[in-house]
Design a protein around this nucleic acid. Structure first.
Length: 930
RNA sequence: GGGCGUUUAGCUCAGUGGUAGAGCAUCUCGUUUACACCGAGAGGGUCGGGGGUUCGAAACCCUCAACGCCCACCA
């Protein structure tokens, strides 16, 4: 029996456990067409936030729908190691517990610590996904740092390297001084801040003067401290103000260095003074200037923490200052020298690390880069020619725009948690000793191999790296050893000749995430899973990671699998709070999906997110909406209880029972129409339309009308054959509803399904046999008429304040034979729902209800307010007349009758006739009132 | 600076050429045996402004405005 009270918490978790135990998430369907989704892997140590809830609800809905439709549906699941985020968390924990920090404990111990944390907290988010009802293929759960993934990552790295699509380069990177690692362009966010713009006078050297007599050049900067690293001043080649000093020098204040005045296109005569200071090592533009004018050289004045380091011309009392302190000191010193022209306050743009929140420093380092522009070519054409489609399509523009301007992708990170880069640098034994002794100046490390700069061997294994090195430098493998640190007491003369050091860096997390669609399926092994489930059908994700993830999966998938990773990319919006604010921990406006699940049930949350997912819009989530859909679930629950208490159980066939009664034939047609609408919604990825259609089917059709209309048929004394037919059809229709609702509300539907009959789980049942369902236009017309009549009578009664309980007689005027038949055959229902029954309507004050061609006259002498009835009829008449006249106007317009579609003209004629007749009958009723 | 999106009932949103819709909220009535997490009914919108195309525009085009997002090295 179905419990009297609907309490989702009482069955959700046990149903989920049953599904999982029985292997329902991945039934064996070797003959069926696969349907594949790979989950966007959540951070392994993270917990479920509302964005996950949305993303995974949509995926689960698609998976469940296709599973019901017989597909070999597979939702590939796993978690991401989330390099920088996870390392950050563990470092913070160490700090909080007063434990030795990362550097103090050393790389190996620290990485062990992170693995321990992963083991400890790694199950949280997958448990939470289960609470949501996500029907993932848990038996094949993956992790972006498991052994298989590691193999895939190494292979990809080595192959790209051998194909010259991945290389090491010295150039400016976005350097995060807090985490002391390089980050990619995408991890930098530009913020507008209140800053100052300092105009500095650089004195001309050797007594030179500008044409206007000035003995200095004014340059402006938002970062005065970088002047310590200036190596030139650039001016426009054709700028008359400076033509005479090009090739001469300025004396760089504070440092005492002489730096040249050069002509370069970067200087824009229209801007500021037209002269610009050049700091190649700390500014992306200035590095370009250096590339064009190598003679100026570059000077690095910052260390990894963005503090001033010893460098040519940097006074000793600057060394060790933070960049902020150095800025103050530079300005103060320049003031003292009277070299500040002015300081302007203005809004400036500054780059910040999206994780660290500190100002990003352009810094000159050696890093690994992927030639993204090359890989982007196919990834662009695959979307252009439709092999992969974005939904909504508007995101394709975003994708194109980024891909067409893509920059080299910096993939190395100076972190410890991640896939270590498979590159080994060879040095001589002597150099190795120097390195071990702390030497950092590569120029002292021997001519052949300079640490971290010279040639390296890229290979999947250490052995292979040794072999490659030995071959290249014509020595034996034994002469090449791999070292992690200097052996106790140094190397003896009998040891190897060369030492290989593995690159200390790890790969960007997104480098491995990019392999997710094929790495999870066993690649580089050519597994059956890979053949069967690549490419996937749909990727469901937030638009905010199109660049980070989608684009990179496209590139790697096409390059290594020679096919797109998925056919469709569905991009949903952000979930915001009820006021439309972005949720964030600092604002304190986050909504915990687990709290909502506890309060309203997972189904209600899922239905809400589905219903609110309209394409191309963010979701403003309001708790009242969830409550409303919890009420919807309650409504269904009670309807099922009513069914059960009336002997209605599960159906025995996916095809509907034979039905003679119009109401039964009608509901079968309604099921068909609802199923059609749902199928269309899935085809269009219109999640809101899906929710809307099933909501209406359940509440507005099945509960509001069907159940009410069949009550008389099931009542005591009713025809037994009709009652039996009705029970069968009702049971069938309820089953179809459970099937149709299951993708969105899996728990309540499964619970009711099993309580209505003993049978296999709903999760593996079959979708509605839409095409085989009959539609009966006559039955639909009958029921539409009936519903219309009841509604009209109810409306009139309420407007005139007729007590709802009063049963009143009616007389009918102008009714056709068909109508008289309908009245007779639906007498019981009309009496019950409209609370009127045939009788003598007398001659006195009568309420007139116009419906179709008939006017129903209901005596309400005791209660009727004649003035109110007149008002009501006047209003109805005005509405009918207005429409009648509008239609007449249209029909009288030759432009319409000649140019509009014939169906539209025909419909206008029909409507005009109907409205005219209605108006006449209303007029007659008014006259009758006197 | 470039690009994209949004603007429809009090709120949240559907509606892409043919008589303005839903849910929630509001108001009225209701102990008719599934459900008050309910039932019945009602009120509420010159579809952001202006112009154009069309027989007909919330929808298509132009323009303006407001709000939001993304990208971008103006020192």
């Amino acid at each position: 029996m179905i419990d009297k009270i609907f309490d989702p918490a009482s069955f959700e978790q046990s149903i989920y456990a049953r599904w999982e135990r029985e292997g329902a998430f991945r039934p064996s369907r070797p003959e069926a067409k696969p349907f594949t989704i790979v989950i966007p892997p959540p951070n392994v140590t993270g917990s479920l936030h509302i964005g996950h809830a949305l993303d995974n609800t949509l995926q689960d809905m698609l998976i469940r729908w296709h599973r019901l439709n017989g597909r070999d549906a597979r939702w590939v699941v796993g978690t991401d190691h989330a390099g920088i985020a996870t390392q950050m968390v563990v470092e913070r924990q160490l700090a909080e517990s007063q434990a030795p920090g990362r550097t103090a404990m050393g790389r190996e111990a620290f990485v062990e610590k992170v693995w321990a944390w992963k083991e400890e907290s790694g199950g949280t988010i997958t448990r939470q996904l289960r609470r949501l009802g996500a029907s993932c293929d848990w038996d094949n759960e993956r992790f972006t740092m498991d052994d298989g993934f590691n193999k895939a990552v190494l292979k990809v790295f080595v192959e790209l390297y051998n194909q010259k699509l991945l290389y090491r380069d010295k150039r400016l990177v976005n350097w995060d001084p807090k985490f002391k690692t390089a980050i990619s362009d995408l991890e930098v966010e530009t913020r507008e801040i209140a800053g100052s713009f300092t105009h500095i006078r650089y004195p001309l050297a050797d007594g030179a003067r500008l044409d206007n007599g000035a003995d200095h050049i004014v340059v402006a900067t938002t970062r005065p401290e970088t002047m310590l690293g200036d190596t030139a001043v650039a001016v426009g080649a054709d700028d008359p103000r400076y033509a005479s000093v090009i090739g001469k020098h300025v004396l760089l204040p504070i440092t005492g260095r002489r730096i040249p005045i050069i002509a370069d296109e970067h200087a824009d005569p229209e801007l500021g003074s037209g002269a610009v200071k050049i700091t190649p090592a700390h500014d992306f533009n200035d590095w370009q200037v250096y590339e064009r004018n190598k003679a100026i050289g570059w000077i690095n004045i910052l260390d990894a923490a963005a503090c001033i380091c010893a460098a040519n011309g940097v006074p000793a009392n600057y060394v060790g200052l933070t960049r902020e302190d150095a800025r103050k000191k530079v300005v103060a010193d320049l003031e003292a020298l009277d070299l500040i022209e002015r300081i302007e306050q203005k809004t400036i743009h500054m780059p910040y690390g999206d994780r660290s929140g500190v100002v990003i420093e352009p810094w000159l380092t050696d890093q690994w880069y992927v030639n993204a522009a090359e890989l982007a070519k196919d990834a662009l054409s695959a979307v252009h020619d439709g092999r992969t489609q974005f939904v909504p399509k508007t995101w394709e523009k975003t994708y194109f725009n980024w891909m067409e301007n893509i920059q080299p992708w910096c993939v190395s990170r100076q972190l410890w948690w991640g896939h270590r880069i498979p590159a080994w640098y060879g040095v001589s034994k002597e150099t190795a000793e120097l390195i071990a002794g702390g030497e950092e100046d590569s120029s002292k490390m021997g001519p052949l191999f300079a640490f971290n700069i010279g040639h390296c061997e890229v290979a999947e294994t250490e052995e292979e790296a040794r072999r490659q090195f030995a071959q290249r430098y014509e020595c034996t493998i034994d002469e090449v050893q791999v070292a992690h640190e200097l052996p106790e007491g140094g190397w003896s003369s009998r040891d190897s000749k060369y030492i290989l050091y593995r690159d200390r860096d790890v790969l960007d997390t997104w480098f491995s995430s990019a392999l997710w669609p094929f790495g999870t399926l066993g690649w580089p092994e050519q597994t059956n899973d890979l053949a069967r489930h690549y490419p996937g059908d749909v990727l469901v994700t937030g638009f905010d990671i199109i660049f980070f993830w989608v684009a990179r999966m496209m590139m790697q998938g096409l390059h290594f699998m020679d096919d797109v990773p998925f056919r469709t990319v569905y991009c949903h919006g952000l979930v915001r709070d009820a006021k439309g604010q972005k949720m964030s921990k600092s604002k304190g406006n986050t909504i915990d999906p687990l709290v909502l699940i506890d309060k309203f049930g997972a189904d209600a949350l899922r239905f809400t997110l589905t219903a609110m997912e309209t394409q191309g819009r963010d979701i403003k989530l309001n708790e009242s909406r969830i409550e409303g859909y919890r009420n919807f679930a309650t409504k269904l629950w009670n309807a099922a209880r009513f069914a059960q208490s009336n002997g209605i159980g599960g159906s025995t066939s996916p095809l509907p029972p034979a039905a003679s009664q119009p109401v039964n034939r009608w509901i079968i047609g309604e099921v068909k129409q609802a199923a059609r609408a749902l199928e269309q919604a899935i085809a269009d990825f219109r999640f809101d339309a899906y929710a809307d259609a099933i909501y209406k089917m359940v509440w507005s059709r099945f509960c509001d009308w069907y159940l009410e209309l069949i009550k008389p048929l099931l009542a005591e004394g009713a025809d037994a054959a009709v009652a039996a037919e009705t029970r069968a059809v009702a049971g069938w229709a309820l089953d179809q509803i459970l099937v149709m609702l299951h993708p969105v509300m899996p728990f309540i539907t499964e619970e009711l399904w099993s309580k209505l009959a003993v049978r296999d789980d709903l999760i593996l049942a079959s979708w509605v046999q839409t095409d085989a369902l009959p539609e009966d236009a006559a039955a639909s017309a009958d029921i539409d008429w009936l519903i219309g009549l009841i509604s009209e009578v109810r409306s009139a009664r309420t407007e005139l304040n007729v007590p709802p309980s009063a049963k009143l007689p009616y007389a009918v005027d102008g009714a056709s034979v068909d109508t008289l038949v309908r009245l007779a055959s639906n007498a019981a229902v009309i009496e019950r729902l409209a609370r009127i029954l045939p009788g003598d309507a007398g001659e006195g004050g009568r309420l007139a209800v116009v419906h179709a061609e008939a006017t129903f006259l209901i005596p309400v002498a005791d209660v009727i307010d004649l003035a109110a009835e007149k008002t009501r009829l006047d209003k109805a008449l005005a509405a009918a007349a207005k429409e009648r006249d509008a239609l007449a106007g249209r029909l009288g317009n030759p432009g319409f009758t000649e140019k509009a579609k014939p169906e539209a003209v025909e419909k206008a004629r029909e409507d005009h006739a109907a409205r005219s007749a209605e108006a006449e009958r209303l007029q007659a009723a008014l006259s009758r009132l006197g």
